[in-house]
């Protein structure tokens, strides 16, 4: 399978990428790891005329400690995250989730920026950035802005990023205690349900992916939490649960409660 024709450009700065996005509009797409975009292009689900490869931008694949935060460049691969000592020590839940993505080869190429921008409803990181209250840093023609994870996801494959914006980094607060629980779709390795729980004293923050068109914070669980797994009963309160050939609404709703319970009790 060979994708439709396109022009390929490799940029060396964020400014250059933003200029090209502005110039080509809808016809252009950013290319990072290519592990969501290229399969879609082969299947003609996507036919961009221009691909802007951002992997040559220096500094966009760094992981640094800045005060109370760990700042992750958008071009960091899943493998880089799971092996980083800084991530393992300060945002272990992210390293844990990275290790569940796809397989070795996918983890070696796919990036966190690409995954967040793609916003696949079954992707893993959305649950983690939500539970961590991470911040997505985007740059566009009007400069740089910070988007709270809770304001980032809008729907299936849609985010609040503007057409001329690229994600440059993700800022994570240091997380003392968190864990990610995933129920794998056994062929693709995506999450049928993925739950991230971050503990903060006696309270918890719960991010859920795979259950609805849009990943969400299970606020009903957070409010009902009283130190054990019982609050998991509220995992899909007020949520429109999705249905597909892997899991119908009833099964997926039940699974969400089971996975939230596991994550709360882990």
């Amino acid at each position: 399978m060979i994708p439709a024709k396109f022009e390929y450009m490799k940029v060396s700065s964020v400014g250059e990428a933003v200029d090209l996005l502005e110039k080509h509009g809808f016809d252009a797409k950013i290319l990072s790891g290519g592990h969501s975009l290229l399969p879609a292009m082969k299947l003609r689900l996507n036919r961009p005329e221009v691909l802007i490869d951002i992997t040559g931008i220096s500094g966009m694949d760094s992981i640094t400690e800045q005060g109370d935060e760990i700042v992750i460049g958008a071009n960091c691969t899943h493998s880089q995250l799971l092996r980083s000592e800084l991530v393992q020590k300060q945002v272990n839940i992210l390293a844990q989730a990275a290790d569940t993505v796809g397989d070795v080869q996918v983890r070696n190429k796919g990036t966190i920026g690409g995954s967040l921008a793609h916003a696949d409803p079954s992707a893993d990181y959305p649950a983690v950035v939500l539970a961590c209250d991470a911040v997505i840093v985007a740059e566009g023609k009007n400069g740089s802005r910070e988007i709270a994870a809770t304001d980032f996801f809008e729907g299936i494959f849609t985010t609040t990023l503007n057409d001329d914006e690229i994600i440059t980094a993700i800022r994570f607060p240091k997380i003392a205690k968190g864990n990610y629980q995933k129920f794998y779709q056994s062929a693709s390795r995506f999450a049928v349900v993925g739950v991230a729980v971050v503990r903060d004293g006696d309270s918890v923050k719960v991010g859920v992916t795979g259950v609805s068109d849009t990943p969400y914070r299970a606020t009903a669980v957070e409010e009902a939490y009283a130190g054990n797994g019982d609050a998991a009963e509220h995992a899909v309160d007020d949520i429109e649960v999705m249905s597909d050939h892997f899991a119908d609404v009833e099964y997926r709703s039940h699974l969400a409660k089971v996975m939230v319970k596991r994550a709360l009790e882990a």
Partner: peptide, 23 residues
């Protein structure tokens, strides 16, 4: 040819990748 089977695996700068999903 759709990044599922791994038959096309090569190493790129030392890391295993699926060459069908790499231009």
């Amino acid at each position: 040819d759709t990044s599922a089977c791994g038959a096309c695996t090569v190493t790129l700068n030392g890391d295993a990748v699926k060459s069908c999903t790499l231009l």
